[in-house]
Design a protein around this nucleic acid. Structure first.
Lengths: 197, 197
DNA sequence: CGACAAGCGGACCGTCCGGTCACGTTAGAC
DNA sequence: GTCTAACGTGACCGGACGGTCCGCTTGTCG
């Protein structure tokens, strides 16, 4: 009656946990052999459950992204749009601070899987809505776009990343700095155009 | 009388050019075999001139950094300190846009050679002086440090990097945004502390 | 020109990677 | 208990990497 044998189900769960830990700690470069060892299974077992390392990575990071997306959706209905956008940015960057693979995916360094690309597109969409709402409430300078915010999501973390080992909370400083620059009142001159679409 | 044979000198020059091109285009991951091929020499010749790939990388990027450092020194005597800092930031980021290996070094991703670490320390020093001067002229919010600016140097480029293929000038947009946030008048609240030293 | 050291090159080494496969094992239906 | 399809495994493959080494070539000096 079961779709899978019980041992297969158990090993898959172990693999997912081990891969999540390995990708978060080491990044997308974590080797399949390392993941298999953490899970206490043979390397061949990894490929029995996932067609490729990319698919495994897509499963892990896709789950993280989907959780984040749901959070973003919730925030689109918050009364204070500026606070909602700020909260979403803060939470997304904190996620990067704790997960190297997620960090690489948000930065566009690791693409791979289709699922990831679709989730990133959905992320761009929800950020665009959060951005538009903050602007309609006059709390965000009107010359930035949702795409700008998405890029800042990885950029802000990357700024603090070189010192992440010794100052893991440093990104908060650069998020605050960026938010100051994003204030309606901060706009001094027109921002250079984004260029080609 | 010559320290080296003429062919050795010629090959070294070719290697330096080829390596500069390869590192700029491909990044620090450029393979020794690739560099040797671009230079039209055998792989063994690379290691005759440079003890390791790291030493070669240090030579190439070190030269780029030294040129940048001299430019920074010159700017410390410019009358308009804010414009000088802005020019230095702009030029440093533009360098990153044209040189992937330099980009990685500034981001702290690729350390390696001692020469590089020394040059980075010198960079931090000159940026600290540019920063202090801009602050003393009241053109830069007083709660940022030279270290912040150094981190922003790579962070701003990294923000635009995901789209560098299609919009190579996009970094100018985020530099402008960051400069808006760095204005004395942009400071809304105190920046979160940097954390441990 | 002759001789010799300096220089060159590419086969080779050890290591790591993602991915495959033939085989032994086992869960679970009957 | 028996049978079998599903499962687990680790040796193995092909390819990439940085780095080494030794036999051949070539610049240079007397």
């Amino acid at each position: 009656m079961s779709e899978q044998r019980s041992d297969a189900r158990r090993n898959r769960q172990r693999l997912v946990s081990a891969a999540a830990e390995a990708f978060a700690t080491v990044g997308t470069e974590a080797s399949v052999a390392d993941i298999a060892e953490r899970a206490g299974v043979g390397k061949g077992t990894v490929f029995r459950h996932f067609a490729s390392k990319d698919e495994l990575l897509g499963t892990i990071v896709g789950d993280v992204l989907d959780t984040l997306l749901r959070r973003g959706e919730d925030l689109t209905t918050a009364p204070d749009a500026a606070a909602a956008l700020e909260a979403f940015m803060s939470e997304t960057i904190e996620l990067q601070a704790h997960d190297r693979a997620f960090c690489e995916v948000v930065a566009g360094t690791a693409v791979g899987d289709r699922r990831i690309r679709e989730s990133i597109a959905a992320l761009e969409d929800v950020v665009a809505r959060l951005t538009a709402r903050a602007q309609s409430q006059g709390a965000l300078r009107p010359d930035v776009t949702g795409d700008d915010i998405v890029l800042l999501l990885s950029g802000i973390y990357q700024t603090a990343a070189p010192l992440s080992a010794t100052r893991p909370e440093l990104w908060r400083r650069y998020l605050a700095l960026a938010l100051d620059g994003l204030q309606t009142s901060a706009a001094r001159t027109a921002l250079p155009a984004a260029g080609a679409p």
